[in-house]
C-alpha cells in the first residue's frame, strides 16, 4: 500500500504525568497520501500522542521525525511552519472575525507578514482565502461572523485554516465529532480527496467506527498508552483484543462495511 515515502516517523514516544504513563513506547509511521486512524478507549493516550506530534507537549522519551527531520519538542508554531496542519477536537477558531478573516490570519502567518503594521488585513490575499473556503465548501459564508457558523461548517473552516500553509501532514483530532452521519462522510471524503490530490498524509483520531472503517487506509489501536494493534480495517475489526477493549459487540456502529478502504 505505502509505496510513498515515509512522511512522519514516530519512534518510542513516551510521556508520563505524575508517575502514570499516558503514552509508552509508541512507534509508527505515516506515508505521504496515506490516511491513518488512531483509535482507542477514552483516556488511552490519543490526545497526548497528538499533542506530542505537533509540539503542544514535549515527550519524556522518543523521537518525532518529519521527512527525516527531527522535530521532537519544537513548539507548535515551528512544527506548523514545517508543514503540519492541525484541527482540534473542540473547534478552535477566531470567533470575533469573519469566516474569511479566519483564513486570512493563517495566510498572513504563512506569508510571514505578522509584524506588518500598515496593510489592510481584510484585503490580504482575499482570492486565496476564498479559494480555500470554496475548496472545503463554505465559500458562501465568507462574510459571516465565524461565531455564527453551524458546527459542521466550523469543522470545515478549521480544515481550510489547516490547509492555508500547504501542509504535508494533517493531524485531525476527532474531525467528525458532533456531526450528522452524512456530514461526517462528506467531510472525510473531502479530506481524502484533498489528501490524495495534494499527497498529504492524514492522521486522525475518531470514535465513529463508520468513519474509521470507511476512510482509513490503516488503523492504529492505542490502549493504556501502548499500541496494541495495527493493520488494515479488516485486520483490526477482527482482532479479538480490540473487540474486547474497544469495539464492544458492534451494536452502536454500522457493522456492514464494505471491504477495503477509501472513498
Amino acid at each position: 500500500m505505502s509505496v510513498a515515502p515515509t512522511l512522519l516517523a514516530v519512534e518510542d514516544l513516551t510521556k508520563s504525568y505524575g508517575g502514570v504513563h499516558a503514552v509508552r513506547g509508541v512507534s509508527f509511521s505515516v506515508a505521504a497520501g496515506e490516511i491513518v486512524a488512531l483509535i482507542g478507549p477514552n483516556g488511552a493516550g490519543k490526545s497526548t500522542c497528538f499533542d506530542m506530534l505537533n509540539g503542544q507537549k514535549t515527550p519524556d522519551r522518543g523521537r518525532v521525525r518529519l521527512l527525516g527531520e527531527d522535530i521532537t519538542g519544537r513548539p507548535p508554531r515551528a512544527v506548523w511552519r514545517l508543514g503540519v496542519g492541525r484541527t482540534f477536537q473542540i473547534t478552535a477558531t477566531f470567533p470575533t472575525m469573519t469566516v474569511r478573516e479566519n483564513v486570512q490570519v493563517a495566510l498572513v502567518s504563512y506569508a510571514n507578514k505578522i509584524f506588518n503594521v500598515w496593510r489592510s488585513t481584510p484585503d490580504f490575499e482575499r482570492g486565496e482565502a476564498d479559494r480555500l473556503l470554496e475548496l472545503v465548501g463554505v465559500g458562501g459564508y465568507a462574510e459571516r461572523p465565524c461565531g455564527e457558523l453551524a458546527y459542521g461548517d466550523l469543522k470545515r473552516l478549521e480544515l481550510a485554516i489547516a490547509l492555508a500553509n500547504h501542509p504535508r501532514l494533517l493531524l485531525m483530532d476527532e474531525p467528525t465529532a458532533g456531526m450528522a452521519p452524512r456530514e461526517r462522510i462528506e467531510l472525510m471524503r473531502l479530506t481524502a480527496r484533498i489528501a490524495r490530490e495534494q499527497s498529504i498524509g492524514v492522521l486522525f483520531t475518531e470514535h465513529d467506527m463508520d468513519v474509521v472503517f470507511e476512510h482509513a487506509n490503516r488503523i492504529l489501536v492505542l490502549n493504556r498508552g501502548t499500541l496494541i494493534a495495527e493493520g488494515s480495517p479488516d485486520d483490526v475489526r477482527r482482532d479479538p483484543q480490540v473487540r474486547a477493549i474497544y469495539l464492544g459487540e458492534g451494536l452502536v456502529y454500522d457493522a456492514r462495511h464494505r471491504e477495503g478502504a477509501g472513498a
Partner: peptide
C-alpha cells in the same frame, strides 16, 4: 493591519 489581526488571533484562541 496584519499585526492587529495576529494580535486579535492570540486573544481569541491561543491554541489556534
Amino acid at each position: 493591519s496584519p499585526f492587529g489581526y495576529s494580535l486579535r488571533a492570540t486573544r481569541d484562541s491561543a491554541l489556534r
